[in-house]
Design a protein around this nucleic acid. Structure first.
Lengths: 202, 202, 202, 202
DNA sequence: CATGAATGAGCTTTCATTCAT
DNA sequence: GATGAATGAAAGCTCATTCAT
């Protein structure tokens, strides 16, 4: 009758510790499935099964399966932002290339845990009507990167920041797809591309 | 994903013109759906409807829905390879940066028609048990690019070629996601990154 | 992605005879279930099972279970209107009480086949976002009845027509609920109420 | 519908005031939901939420959701009977039409508070394995009405009483469905029908 | 007693695929 | 060959009810 508008926001916050464990289990199982099976294998029954949780419990906390996806993205973004923002304050006191390298390494550290996951999320991401906080985090990341760029050389720093993110994402996804990678191999290659893009190759 | 292995090859070659038209209609409809709705909206009933073809006819030419995807990828790769291979012969007689720019522009021309499609295919691609010809084309593209790289500066030319493809892919996808792009804006940015990566910034 | 707005209209018209049989089977099974189990027992799995049809076939023709309900209502209304409209032309040439009696009898004939069904439909009816044709039929029925009422005595003929329908409906539902009824018993009682309402008791 | 027979009686009498408040809150919330969403929206989780009571508490006092429904019906019947029985003693000392009018007005007063509720209850009513007290009240109401009917004119006073109830119910439901109504408009129309039915139009 | 997390049967609906016409 | 009706496994999700805390 009165069709409730299904949002993508988590349904209710877990008040008891037991509930938080359930939510975590669901998210972890989801991430694993996403990584192993990709988007096509991402279904709530399988998630619940792997999480060792009843399907009903899953839906206590997430109104739709997209909401699970959105929460994974949100949590990932939070952690990525934590990693990046730790580096930004030092940008003033060191050469740009060093800051860049630090940011790339932070990103690779962040991806290293579950490399396949990022690809699936990157793709799913676009399809999601992304909610406030995650969008804010994205903006923050872009702004943060834009902030370290020298405004005398870079005409449009926001576009540049977006390009930087795109380059890193593209290269990490590519490397992941081709097999596995080690930070010490991949990071320098990414940095070369970024430095070239920024015109700071010496 | 883990499914019973069915051939992904097109079921039978369309000998008659009518049949070829059917196949084309299916592929075009599929591409449109993929572009508009992404992988989740990609279903055979809808494809048949949009193609103006009965579902039965669709299955005359494609044994599974993955086969449709594979054929789209195959055709796209063919065209991309056509675009790229036309530039490669001139690589010897011109500076590397010129060749790079030509290749980037050829790629952007190729993507310009249906910008959203590439993202979906890139993602779907990995899930597919890729068949011979398409894999060959991928290899050819990588080899072709590797071939123009100076082997005195680049230690591992195959990896470099892969990175180049990844950078281009990443930046085009990023630009597509952010909105629309114009070749004359995007190409120089991509080239800067590539040149930096290759260490040829002057 | 693009959530198709689910209407209540039948999904596609059956083109082959086989398909029409499927649709009829679904509607018949639905009516039987509605009659026997009421609204709570009205579920698509049970309907398909009783209809001897796969659940998929059911959804080929009806986008939602409400659409089935709507179609049942629509078909019932058509038949009721057929029954009533056959009597209306004679209204001029006979006393009002005779016309009333004829209409009541036509209604009882119409209800006699599946007495329980009407109650469920009457209730479900209100919850349905009723579509054009059925609403039109309702209006026609009200208008038709209003048309036979003497406008010199009845101030608001539309309200009167609605009251008449309500009285008949109420008494038939009541009689059905109390057990079973015979037309020759029930019709005179209904007519007495209607005549009293219209002020034509002699 | 065909279910394992569970008692429908309230689970335990609320001895403390707090408990009575819980029961009342549940019943009020249920009524509101029933009125706004109808039978399909009537679910215990939602009821508990709207009542501001935990689902566990709800099940302390009502063994099943049907029990809630039954209790609502029971309380409504009690109040209706209170309204009606206040009028019955005067039946001897006044004309039948006056008594009828009084009873109709009492009924309308009773319905006025929550007009939509009655329809849902009337329908749900039939599905319920009605328990002793409510059935008694129904009988009392019928008997009470039958008692005021002149046995010289009305052959079967029980049937007549049932018809009267059915007419009133039908007309009130109809008026409610058509929009809202005012007692001073609706009561006379109902009375006309009843008087006609009873053959007391002057 | 109250709470609310958890359960899972069961409902609605989709969609890849087959097969009679 | 083409058609589209039919299929049914499987996915998404709800909700009555229980039970540990």
């Amino acid at each position: 009758m009165t069709k409730t508008v299904t949002s993508i926001e988590p349904r209710k916050l877990p008040r008891q510790r037991r509930a938080a464990a359930t939510v975590d289990a669901v998210l972890e199982a989801s991430a694993r499935i996403l990584e192993r099976e990709g988007l096509p294998g991402f279904n709530t029954n399988e998630i619940a099964r792997l999480a060792g949780v009843s399907i009903g419990s899953l839906y206590q906390y997430f109104p739709t399966k997209e909401a699970i996806l959105a929460e994974i993205v949100r949590r990932k973004r939070i952690r990525l932002w934590e990693g990046l923002s730790a580096e930004l304050p030092h940008a003033d006191s060191q050469p740009l290339t060093v800051t860049i390298r630090r940011l790339v390494e932070a990103t690779l550290d962040h991806q290293a845990d579950n490399p396949g996951l990022a690809r699936a999320l990157d793709y799913a991401y676009a399809a999601l009507p992304l909610q406030g906080e995650t969008e804010d985090l994205n903006a923050k990341i872009i702004q943060g990167i834009a902030g370290i760029l020298p405004d005398d050389v870079i005409p449009d720093r926001i576009t540049a920041a977006r390009d930087i993110v795109a380059i890193v994402r593209g290269m990490v996804d590519g490397a992941t797809l081709a097999g596995s990678w080690r930070k010490q191999d991949l990071a320098p290659r990414i940095c070369r591309a970024l430095e070239g893009y920024l015109g700071v190759c010496e």
